Computed example of a mutant assay.
Amino acid sequence: MNDKKLLRYSRQILLPEIGIEGQQTLLNSTLLLIGMGGLGAPNALYLAASGVGHLIIADFDQVELSNLARQVIHHTNDIGKDKVISAKEKMLAINPDIQITTLTDLSEDNIEDWVQKADIVLDGTDNFNTRFRINQACVTQHTPLVSAAVIRFEGQLSVFKGYEKNQPCYQCLYPTTGNNDENCSNNGILAPVAGLLGTMQALQAIKVILNLGEQLTGKLMMVDALDLNFRTIKLSKDKHCPICNLSQ
């Protein structure tokens, strides 16, 4: 680490739980961020600023006016631009020393290849089918999944390691049947709620990388932003789960 990087990350390096060794671990890490929307916007900015060395960002969509209230990585003059291009520009403006790979074609056919390249996956998507496929790829590739979701004034956050014997995967929490794909497009969301959960998602990813503190593995944090209430419940592995039980 050169003098410029030591200065850039000096406030993190001062933390005894991180230090130079921990910062170097961040610089050596690769994270896959799926979705550059309300969750992906803040987590991308903070992970870039924190010095994660390689960030792979995936989104097929373009910036729209209705995105701007909560997707703070995109600006008015980005309307019509691919979200990954818009996001990359802001991330490099904060930290030009990191590597950013953009994907607009993440699909059923290539998701496992990209998950395999990552140390951790952050899921910031807004529909169950995509989340199920991301979860399946993470279980198959033995990659930790940091999952966040937001709607209205509410949010959820968890870390899934379903490839481990006693740990649940995302599908243990949400079976494929009975989901109605609620999302903020249909139900609305208060903008800072996305910022709160997206920032916490970045925090959890760093804690997993560095093996720090409470990582929410096998737990679900539920946030009620209207009452400012945080509640955490324990999650159990579903012995009938068709995804993570087949990986054992």
Rank of each mutant, 00 (worst) to 15 (best):
K4M: 10
K5S: 13
S10H: 10
E21T: 12
E21L: 08
E21N: 13
G22Y: 01
Q23W: 01
Q24R: 10
T25Q: 12
T25N: 00
N28F: 00
T30W: 01
L31W: 02
G38K: 10
L39C: 07
P42C: 08
P42T: 07
A49R: 06
S50L: 02
S50V: 01
G51D: 05
V52L: 03
G53H: 02
I57D: 07
Q62R: 15
Q62V: 15
V63A: 10
L65M: 14
L65K: 11
S66L: 09
L68W: 13
R70I: 05
H74I: 08
D78N: 15
I79F: 09
G80P: 06
K83M: 07
I85N: 12
I85K: 14
S86C: 07
K88D: 06
K90P: 04
I94T: 12
I94H: 07
I94F: 12
D97W: 05
I98R: 04
L103R: 14
T104C: 10
D105K: 13
I111A: 12
I111N: 09
K117W: 02
K117S: 05
D119Y: 03
V121H: 04
V121A: 07
L122D: 01
G124Q: 09
N127W: 10
N129I: 08
R131K: 14
R131S: 14
R131E: 09
C138Q: 04
V139P: 02
Q141W: 01
Q141G: 00
T143K: 15
S147L: 05
A149V: 10
A149F: 11
V150H: 11
G155S: 12
K161S: 03
E164V: 02
Q171P: 01
Q171L: 12
Y174E: 06
Y174S: 11
Y174Q: 12
P175Y: 12
T177V: 10
T177Q: 15
G178A: 12
N179S: 12
E182N: 11
N183Y: 08
C184F: 13
S185D: 11
S185W: 05
N186S: 13
A191T: 09
A194D: 06
A194C: 14
L196K: 02
L197P: 01
T199L: 06
A202E: 02
A202R: 01
L203P: 00
Q204N: 07
A205Q: 01
A205H: 01
K207S: 05
V208N: 01
I209K: 00
I209S: 00
I209D: 00
L210F: 03
G213C: 03
Q215V: 07
L216R: 07
T217Y: 02
L220R: 09
L228H: 11
N229L: 14
N229T: 13
F230A: 13
L235F: 08
S236G: 10
S236H: 14
K237M: 05
D238A: 09
I243F: 03
I243E: 11
I243Y: 03
N245W: 00
Q248W: 01
